[in-house]
Design a binder for these strands. Sequence first.
DNA 1: TAGTGTGAATGGATTCACAGCC
DNA 2: GGCTGTGAATCCATTCACACTA
Lengths: 241, 241
Amino acid sequence: MNSPGNPSRENSRNGKQRRRRAAAGWTNPRDIPDPVARRLSLYLRQLEAMRSEGKTISSKQLGDKLNLTDAQVRKDLAYFGQFGNPGIGYVIDELVQRLRRILGTDRVWNVLLVGMGNLGAALAAYRGFEKKGFRLVAVFDADPNKTGRPVTVLDGVRVQPLSELSDTVNRLDVQLAIVAVPAEAGQQAADALIHAGIKGLLNFAPISLVTPPHVAVSSVDMAVQLEQLSFRVGCMLEGGG
Amino acid sequence: MNSPGNPSRENSRNGKQRRRRAAAGWTNPRDIPDPVARRLSLYLRQLEAMRSEGKTISSKQLGDKLNLTDAQVRKDLAYFGQFGNPGIGYVIDELVQRLRRILGTDRVWNVLLVGMGNLGAALAAYRGFEKKGFRLVAVFDADPNKTGRPVTVLDGVRVQPLSELSDTVNRLDVQLAIVAVPAEAGQQAADALIHAGIKGLLNFAPISLVTPPHVAVSSVDMAVQLEQLSFRVGCMLEGGG
DNA sequence: TAGTGTGAATGGATTCACAGCC
DNA sequence: GGCTGTGAATCCATTCACACTA
């Protein structure tokens, strides 16, 4: 998140109201800082992997696993009210449930995929989404040679042409879309998706999408990720680490 | 970058020295803030896509494309000396060259891949890496059923067993590795890679890797990315945007 | 005029430190 | 003793504003 082309540029000058609302039992997640939201996902992932290892966990234990301070963990969680036990820590199962609720993975999201190339096919076959409550319900491609065929890894799903986008989004109540098309086709695909009513985009095309503020965008550019590595490794080599 | 399990935790109290060194023509990239490094990649990507559109570009023009302020763009670039022209802007070709130099993509990096499942296969077939100077030179998998076979999309590369890791890393001078194995195998794979001398890991396994400080790690968890979307979209729906 | 480079000011995020609780 | 929740303090990143330059 917080890659360019993302919407979180609303100037909310309401920091003061936050605590009051939290005390009332719920906080409007709109004013949760981005870094906090990202860490929530990491907490959840870590906790889910640790469920067998005990019933409770302290902020220190959790933080150590993720290279974060205990204070950071507590502050993050405190955005959503107080549900830790002094002297004991947090009850893992309870915390998992709460985080799911907060992050929205306590419900099922219908997701569609645009672009059935190598990456698209791999993503369609990836089972990791389902565990988190994301159900891939439709697949699209601009290439007429690819449309019509059934998607072998997905029961009852066939590759559709983009002309059927709006219809399908409405019929299946799809909220999220994965964009796995080449750079040149990325913006156009995004425009079509947004026009069809999609509320969130996971973008794998190596471009900065331009989107209206009511659409959430999260971008993954694998070449950029490798580039960041090459930068950091380069540092160490010549900086003489 | 800056996902847990990453090394940038060195407490450098040397902010003062930065400018002096920059004036001398070069800055030790070790003390470049992470957000800056990430944006450098975005600048480069944007500029490469715009080379045809003109000879120079201003910080404002570039910033607008990426939803950043002009001041931000200038500050970021100023970390590496001054190469803009007052009244004119930056010469695109020159800036591209400089950014490549800085990010380390003006040279070729040899990369290996561990895990030849769906995602691994898609990554092996992805041509986007080569353009940036990353050459996939070896592929590994723990499953004996997969080893030995040639990788069809890569000339002269066959899937090797992990026992050959160290040998290959040394022989081919590999610096970076992509980890595309299941969560359970992630840490073990990372350990083996680091032991073999790999300097940077691009991790797709949905876990937080534990790594020594001299190894750079960049993580991509697609389920987490979707989760962030579901969080942001959830906000808008119930926050009544 | 149009733009860079950069100190100073602002705004956010992280960490500290401690009161309060089990 | 161990741990949470949180104001205060610190640290870092971003933006402002302007001297300076082509």
